[in-house]
Write a protein that binds this DNA or RNA. Structure first.
Lengths: 230, 230
DNA sequence: CCAAAAGTGTTACCGTTACACCCATGC
DNA sequence: GCATGGGTGTAACGGTAACACTTTTGG
């Protein structure tokens, strides 16, 4: 058995593609870029780049995201590696996908203007190049799975949010409707949130109380590995 | 924004490492190889190889597995990609891990003799080279997660098996004890198995009926995406 | 005063869990 | 005849799901 029979010629180009999710107007959004170079110039694509010698995959994904959004400390998760022989017609490329959750409000709007990037409703996502549509599907599945077990959804919301926003976010991600009272009861049972004295007045006359994550409790619960099944 | 600024020098070596699970003696097992070359000669390692130009990752994993076990049609799932800068001290290598479920009974014993490979109790797994211990942990987590939602565990068993074997396999994977009656009731509610007229006489005097998967129902249920929460 | 969203508890139902005894047979 | 594992059903419990009315206030 020979395991170390590798050839330098078998080295490949490694790309990182990011499925960037956002949430506003009660919809799950995805950030896409219009390619300004061949092949597939003018078509929509995930935001991506190539792995560099001096970084690992997580660092590459972070760099690519920071470059396009100006944000640091973005929540990210590796999803899958894609390697079909002709997925990139230009050159053999393996791509590792990451999904990212970003708070659209924090996201620097200037960069949106400087770059040919745009938020799309996930439900209204255009045809993407290569196998990027598959990547989006797989990323969504993983997100749905993750959020059903860990309360990572906060990453999509501003620091303070209403219970209704939180619920709508879950509904958008899971593509389902949830009962208002059951949702609140369930979420309160997790004991993760602090009620603030502030109200959001933008969506009703009465106003809705804003909540925020109790970071101490949040960290503790995550470490304990509690179940957050919604 | 420049997305296509890749350099040929950033190409990397891509490895595939397989976490091969088996099940016998009521224990979850893992197949490991003792390295017969430097670096880390003599240490235990996952079974792996390098991606070749003309194949994708799934094909590479299949090839590596077939080479060592002689088996085809092995159940496999990609787990994760590992890319820490110095994970392989010899040369920058990114590794994509796969877990595989194999029926140890079908697995050709000659290959075990020809090669420095050996089955270990997962609980008794030695220190492995590089980040292979992490790979095993991650693979086990994914397996536990998968088997809680899809009935893939059959892949570890011979074609015909007793309910007790099935239960012990779940117990081994999930590292928990299950109630005999509840397990059988639950599993029967999935309506996936056919009772045969044969009995396994090896573990009791009365003998235990052998069951087999009803392939038609199995395929249908998988497609429908039914829940198989144990 | 009315429209529109916020906020709040209780009950019925169903799935999960806990649990014990008889059966068949080889020795 | 007895020790060993095989096979079976029911009842209590707990979590999930269904459900409606009152409150607030800007216009």
């Amino acid at each position: 058995m020979v395991l170390n029979n590798y050839c330098k010629e078998d080295k490949v180009l490694l790309a990182v593609d990011c499925i960037i999710f956002g949430f506003y107007q009660e919809e799950l959004k995805i950030l896409l870029v219009q390619r300004d170079f061949e092949p597939a110039k003018g078509e929509w694509s995930l935001i991506g780049g190539f792995l560099k010698k001096e970084e690992d995959l997580d660092a590459a994904a972070t760099r690519i995201l920071n470059h396009l959004t100006g944000l640091n400390n973005i929540y990210m998760d590796q999803v899958h590696s894609y390697s079909k022989l002709n997925r990139d017609p230009e050159e053999r490329t393996i791509s590792v996908s990451y999904f990212a959750l970003i708070d659209v409000a924090h996201h620097c709007k200037d960069l949106l203007k400087q770059n040919p990037i745009k938020w799309f409703d996930l439900k209204d996502c255009p045809e993407l190049i290569f196998d990027h549509n598959d990547m989006v599907k797989d990323a969504l599945k993983l997100l749905q799975n993750k959020i059903s077990n860990k309360p990572i959804g906060f990453e999509l919301l501003p620091e303070k949010f209403t219970m209704r926003q939180l619920q709508k976010m879950y509904e958008a991600i899971l593509d389902t409707e949830l009962d208002k009272r059951n949702f609140i009861n369930k979420f309160n049972s997790f004991d993760l949130l602090k009620k603030t004295n502030e109200k959001d007045m933008s969506s009703s006359k009465k106003g809705a109380f804003l909540f925020e994550v109790d970071e101490d409790k949040y960290q503790k619960k995550i470490e304990e590995g509690c179940s957050f099944k919604i």
